[in-house]
Design a protein around this nucleic acid. Structure first.
Length: 115
DNA sequence: TTGCTGACCGACG
DNA sequence: CCGTCGGCCAGCA
């Protein structure tokens, strides 16, 4: 069953909403889970559009593979992304997540196969 | 319609 | 270690 009635963006949002509180994942991990490993850029693009989405998307829980807050400039304030993460107990220093491996949540491992 | 661009990633020298 | 390049593909002028 897995029709493609859902757009790629919508699939990205669905996964993003499943990221547990206090955990983070990467653009590439979400792309890989959706079976489009090479489309990590599209995940970032989807996050950019997530602000206009009707539902709340925890975009601050999505960082790049190095655990760096590369998308911080797309939040209202460049400090907002870090503040949101720290409010969840995620330590951030110099735009980089401390103990990234520990906070990392991999949808490919944590979630069942995509529909 | 064509041709950029982009919150990425991995490979190469 | 560092810079650069190709690939991926949805939006937009």
């Amino acid at each position: 069953m897995g029709e493609s009635t859902d757009s790629f963006f919508h699939k990205v949002y669905k996964v993003a909403r499943l990221i547990p509180y206090g955990r983070v994942t990467s653009y590439g991990a979400i792309a890989a889970y959706l079976g489009a490993k090479g489309s990590a850029r599209m995940v970032g693009w989807a996050m950019n559009a997530s602000f206009t989405a009707k539902e709340d998307i925890p975009a601050h829980r999505v960082v790049n593979r190095n655990g760096m807050l590369t998308g911080k400039n797309h939040f209202g304030s460049p400090l907002l992304m870090q503040q949101l993460l720290e409010s969840e107990g995620v330590e951030v220093v110099d735009d980089k997540i401390i103990n990234f491996e520990k906070c990392f949540w991999d949808p490919v491992k944590e979630l069942p196969a995509q529909e």
